[in-house]
Design a protein around this nucleic acid. Structure first.
Lengths: 352, 352
DNA sequence: CTGTTAGCGCCTTCAT
DNA sequence: ATGAAGGCGCTAACAG
């Protein structure tokens, strides 16, 4: 590969002139520019990205960081990423997906700074160590989701109002007359599941419905959403036949619930209402019956997060911002008023 | 940020010793190592990624390259990416998603080498310029999908046998007695659509069924899969009521076909058989009726591509390899034998 | 407008 | 096992 020196030599100019022809940081005469460009073309030269980064102290790359060892993007992450990518391409940033396990990064030969100007952190959990690490390294960070604890006021983030989401989903079902509502929440420790769980409890309390801990279950991180939805709803509907409504974390999880219900001869929405937190607008309407849900606008979350981060990288300023993306309840056909005789139809015992 | 000099100074050793403590490229005594590490910890030092890359002439980053200006990952890309990421993390590579439009990259200030050791190219098309560009820059490349024209023998690639896939799907329907089969293919110019189209025609010819150009339609790149599937199948079923089977490019497209059929009072599979090329094992079984399809194993495609590329980066060798991932026909419930009286039921004319 | 001279932070011979 | 010096390719500060 030709270097800047080669070009300078064959064009008969200095390195810095070549540099400035390419970077356009200071004006170079038309003729010289032509001469340099011709030489560059001839030598098939292009500035070396890493040498440039080293001298510039910036990479124009932002990172997308997933927690956990095995990276496994979900549909929701896909939406986020599409949003992030679109914003990136608008500002000339590249996106680095961080897939390396911590264990690897801590081995001596692999210890190094990160090749990014900043990071977007996905799926924050309580006791998330990623934020503190980056603050220590003085690396710009934007979180998608609520940062845990104190960090909420220390780093910028983009989120839905998940307490409100939990409240709204629950309230919606309460209004339909359901009072035994099973909540199949996201994995424990994720701040999103904490928030939604809180919203769920608040709505119950506001309606004077006692909170039953049995009815709030966190996803098993080792299972797929749909198989978890299937097995846990089957188990719970068996054990507590007075359950008349289920809130699920995702549309895939709802799919599992649909299957369980169908196998058990439970009709949706007549005997069981289902509502999901979801971003998908393609599959949900095609469920049978179409799935009612709260739409999260993942692409927008991603876009806003990227925008915040890129701003932060460019300005090197530390104004902490918080952006809440509003959600939208989409009523389709999976929820109905609670039927009074559900318990008997199912042959189970009612608590009331 | 502390540099290697700072550490060397406070540890009372030379730069090269510090370098070797971290890189472990030559043995350093236990005591000195301890001393250096202590100094590093104290100064919060970590080797600079860019400086290292510059000196090493390698980044340990591979690129994932999408064609087109607006990046929009689909479900299938998601599978690919998960595979790529898993393989990356196994070998200590990071993944850079290439999202920058060509127009941007051609502006003078942005012209530069790519910050990657090699690239995985997605969705190759006829006349794809990306491959030649990279060969010129001497950048390792692996294509997912069949490279166009001559490049097939010049670059490594991972693909399904899409001619066979096209043949198999068609043959399957022919055996069920269908002979007016609509093929809703991927976008024109994609090598995958060319291959499948070829397979489709071959099967027809082998069965002595005349090929009708009207029945082979390429996806409109500006539409979503499902809306394309919906509108085009509605139009075609109207125009040519003797169509008794449809092959779709993806499961999302099949969803559109389902909707069109339902609106038109056409029963699947009784009046219309549907088969899709698909990677999704979550939604397809939940279609009503469950969707029959040819499973593509996207994650494996991604994994193998990453493996090939990383090999190539490490070895700097140019042995061109070709890996075909076998597919699997999954029979569910969306296909049935062609009914003899379909034309009459639909009120249309039959060709026979 | 252009050239000269120092770095950016690390790695790598070649010594010892 | 450790040190010294030079180089990776580019940008930046200072001249003129």
């Amino acid at each position: 590969m030709a270097t800047i020196d080669d070009v300078a030599r064959t064009a008969g100019v200095s390195k810095s002139t070549v540099s400035n022809v390419f970077s356009q940081k200071r004006p170079i005469s038309k003729e010289v520019t032509e001469r340099v460009l011709a030489a560059a073309r001839k030598l098939n030269y292009r500035p070396n990205y890493w040498a440039r980064s080293l001298a510039n102290r910036t990479t124009r790359i932002i990172g997308l960081n997933m927690p956990g060892e095995r990276v496994k993007f979900s549909l929701f992450h896909l939406s986020l990423m599409n949003g992030v990518l679109n914003e990136c391409s608008l500002h000339g940033y590249r996106l680095l997906v961080n897939s390396l396990p911590k264990s690897y990064l801590n081995e001596l030969p692999h210890v190094s700074s990160e090749p990014v100007d900043g990071d977007i952190l996905l799926d924050p959990v309580e006791k998330d160590t990623r934020i503190a690490e980056r603050i220590r390294k003085n690396l710009p960070v934007v979180v998608i989701g609520r940062p845990p604890g104190d960090f909420e006021s220390k780093v910028s983030y983009v989120d839905n109002d998940n307490v409100a989401n939990g409240e709204n989903a629950t309230q919606y079902l309460l209004r339909l007359g359901h009072n035994r509502i099973l909540f199949l929440n996201a994995s424990r420790y994720k701040t999103v599941s904490i928030d939604r769980g809180l919203g769920y409890r608040r709505s119950l309390e506001a309606a004077g419905v006692p909170f039953d801990p049995q009815l709030l279950i966190h996803k098993d991180p080792d299972m797929t959403s749909s198989s978890f939805g299937y097995s846990i709803s089957k188990e719970m509907l068996m054990k507590l036949p007075d359950i008349t409504a289920i809130i699920t974390d995702t549309d895939k999880m709802a799919l599992g619930v649909y299957r369980a219900a169908s196998e058990m001869g439970i009709a949706i929405p007549d005997d069981l209402s289902v509502i999901a937190f979801s971003d998908d607008s393609v599959f949900a309407p095609e469920f049978n019956p179409p799935l009612t849900g709260i739409k999260l606008f993942g692409e927008q979350l991603g876009r806003e997060a990227a925008k915040l981060l890129i701003d932060q990288c460019a300005a090197k300023q530390h104004s902490v911002k918080r952006i809440l993306i509003s959600t939208e309840m989409v009523e389709r056909g999976s929820c109905a008023a609670a039927s009074q005789n559900k318990g008997k139809i199912q042959g189970g015992m009612k608590n009331e």
